[in-house]
Design a protein around this nucleic acid. Structure first.
Length: 347
DNA sequence: AAGCCGGGGAG
DNA sequence: CTCCCAGGCTT
């Protein structure tokens, strides 16, 4: 590794200048505060900006301060998060807010080291809040930065394994050490990855770092970083039974761990294979007097290919949580379960 | 080090 | 279809 401080400083200047000229106007950039950054960063974990835009302002209107969030019921927080995915983030955000109120007098810590002690905040998120809001000189590495720096340094191998990530953190740390503004350099590097140095067809003609980019010098932009093999999706079958009685629908809460934890659903039985009506009636948590299939659809998550088999059922059972459509709308539901309630509305 | 956790958009 | 996304936690 050849050190070149002049090159490093030039790179940080180029990134900062480009960012100041071409950065998008995003809600969390309008006003800066630790709380606003905290909400934005948790929502943005493994989630694209366009998707977060649909949630960010609404969430802040519902929970204007970190104390409002700490006071809220977890089900309310989950309901605000509904549809955004990775719901553990919502519970982490809620727990972090409560920790800040109980341990820090309601003031979010300013240093990356203190922030990283909060639930749901790892090295990236702590560095992002500390550097972007408070200009602390700490590096950040997310998916965008991994790609930008791998190309900039022409590191073809192992961008995603332990060694590759360590090298990327090293590079990010070295560069931010030369930056006139940690805030604008760090955010600029991510913005560059999102807008210019994109995974498939990077727009090198518009890139402020084109002259410094080793990958471009070797015409290897498309080879870096090598694609990361994803997990294989297992096929599973969810048999969901709509049970209605006097304009109310029977719902149950999912377990506290695993997929869609603590969220709600119509009585649903999961199985590796499709079940017959008899098998479904035998093993469903609710005794049925009637059962008929009405619909089916597919739903994908990172680790599963789920086929939802939707049924209409009847029961004599009176116990349980029977909800009107309005009540159900306020509960946290997965997207497929929300779709099933739409089917129930037409049934 | 690898698995788990959502959902949608791009190509 | 595949790959990716302002990752973190658990095992």
């Amino acid at each position: 590794m050849i050190r070149n401080p002049r090159r490093d400083r030039e790179i940080t200047r180029k990134v900062i200048r480009w960012f100041e000229a071409d950065a998008r106007e995003l809600p969390w950039r309008r006003k800066r505060s630790g709380y606003r950054a905290l909400v934005a960063e948790l929502m943005l974990q493994q989630t694209q900006v366009a998707r977060v835009l649909e949630y960010y302002d609404r969430f802040l209107r519902r929970f204007p301060t970190i104390r409002d969030l700490a006071r809220a019921d977890e089900q309310d927080v989950l309901a605000q998060w509904q549809g955004l995915g990775y719901y553990r983030r919502a519970r982490h955000l809620h727990a972090a807010a409560r920790a800040v109120v109980s341990d820090h007098r309601g003031r979010l810590p300013r240093s990356a080291a203190e922030l990283e002690k909060l639930p749901g905040i790892g090295r990236y998120t702590a560095g992002a809040i500390a550097s972007i809001v408070h200009d602390e000189r700490v590096p950040i590495v997310d998916g965008n930065v991994t790609r930008v720096l791998a190309r900039l340094e022409g590191r073809r191998s192992s961008a995603h394994d332990g060694k590759g990530q360590a090298a990327t953190w090293q590079t990010a740390s070295r560069l931010v050490g030369h930056a006139a503004s940690s805030s604008r350099f760090n955010e600029g590097l991510m913005e560059l990855g999102a807008l210019i140095c994109t995974p498939r067809q990077p727009n090198c003609k518009s890139c402020p770092l084109a002259r410094h980019c080793r990958a471009r010098q070797h015409h290897a932009q498309h080879l870096i970083p090598p694609p990361k093999p994803g997990p294989r999706q297992q096929p599973v079958h969810h048999h969901a039974v709509i049970v209605q009685r006097k304009a109310r629908t029977l719902l149950e809460q999912r377990p506290a761990t695993g997929l869609w934890s603590n969220m709600w659903q119509v009585p649903t039985l999961e199985s590796p294979t499709p079940l017959s009506g008899e098998e479904l009636r035998e093993h469903l948590s609710v005794p049925l007097t009637h059962l008929e299939p009405v619909d089916s659809f597919r739903h994908q998550t990172t680790h599963r290919r789920i086929t939802f088999h939707v049924y209409l059922g009847r029961t004599r059972l009176r116990r349980g949580t029977w909800c009107t459509q309005e009540e159900a709308a306020s509960l946290p539901l997965s997207n497929p379960q929300r779709r099933i309630l739409e089917i129930a509305l037409r049934a």
